[in-house]
Write a protein that binds this DNA or RNA. Structure first.
Lengths: 146, 146
DNA sequence: AGGTAAATGAAACTGGGTATCAATAAAGAA
DNA sequence: TTCTTTATTGATACCCAGTTTCATTTACCT
């Protein structure tokens, strides 16, 4: 499974630019989400945060998740594991593939989806302003290891 | 917004065929979901059920939702309103459009999605076994009434 | 350094959803 | 029809992810 990475510094810069104060709780959580190899729930992020910063509060984590999501830095996954997990956002790669075996997320080129949306707009007359596409199955690695 | 309908009798037949007993609670809830014009949450269905059958229990509703979903008769919507609403399933029309104004769901021909999936399988090597696509925006009616 | 408001943490709270279990009622047998 | 069996139901207690509250802390600006 090809993995794309994200730079926590960029997230901190974006938060700074948006006027948020730079705190240790924020830095901890940004690093956790930006480096996560798997989709992460708020509770999982909370557990991870307390390992390096024990007195991190639960509310802080939920507030940070909300902040990161509203800035478009992370996005929610609507999957077989529930709808409470998040992955870093990769611009121009909005199509998500989730491996039902290893659980990892892969990002796919979303131009085909843009075409599909334009096609659907013409066919129905609806004005489509947002979309959500997720694909599920077995990733390349898990197919080989099976 | 074009609306497609579903026959409750078919659902009851499917439940019967699967070995479930025919009960009044079941009949009540099947009618509610099959006739709903809008996506319905379990709590909303519970409210609706108690209007015609006051002593309907909450657990019964959740059990019925699970049953209907596992038989593929209803499907969960992952939307801006949360992930707890359900709509009747229409075979061959798996693409959902949700109007952010009136809240109604429209079903779209999903052949374009099938093509996209095949394309993505070839491009990535992943084996795609399931998909979830939802489109959001303003439906034809709401564009006119705006 | 000092003032100020944002950010935090602890804890109480909310509400959707689940587990339990005794009572009910559907389906088949006699 | 009545009887027997067992799935289904409803009431209640329960769970837990997520939110609210508020006093305390801390980043930022001067």
């Amino acid at each position: 499974m090809p993995s794309k990475t994200v730079n926590p510094e960029d997230w901190l810069a974006a938060l700074d630019k948006s006027g948020f104060r730079m705190t240790t709780a924020q830095e901890t959580l940004v690093n956790i989400f930006a480096h996560s190899e798997y989709p992460l729930s708020a509770e999982q992020a909370w557990d991870a945060a307390r390992q390096s910063r024990p007195k991190t509060g639960r509310a802080t984590v939920y507030r940070m998740v909300e902040k990161l999501e509203s800035l478009g830095l992370i996005r929610r996954i609507h999957g077989y594991l529930g709808c409470s997990h998040f992955v870093p956002t990769l611009p121009e790669l909005m199509m998500l593939f989730i491996c039902l075996d290893c659980g990892r997320a892969d990002y796919l080129d979303s131009r085909p989806l843009d075409d599909l949306i334009q096609q659907s707009e013409h066919a129905t007359g609806h004005q489509i302003t947002d979309s959500r596409l997720q694909l599920f199955g077995a990733c390349v690695d898990c197919q080989q290891n099976a």
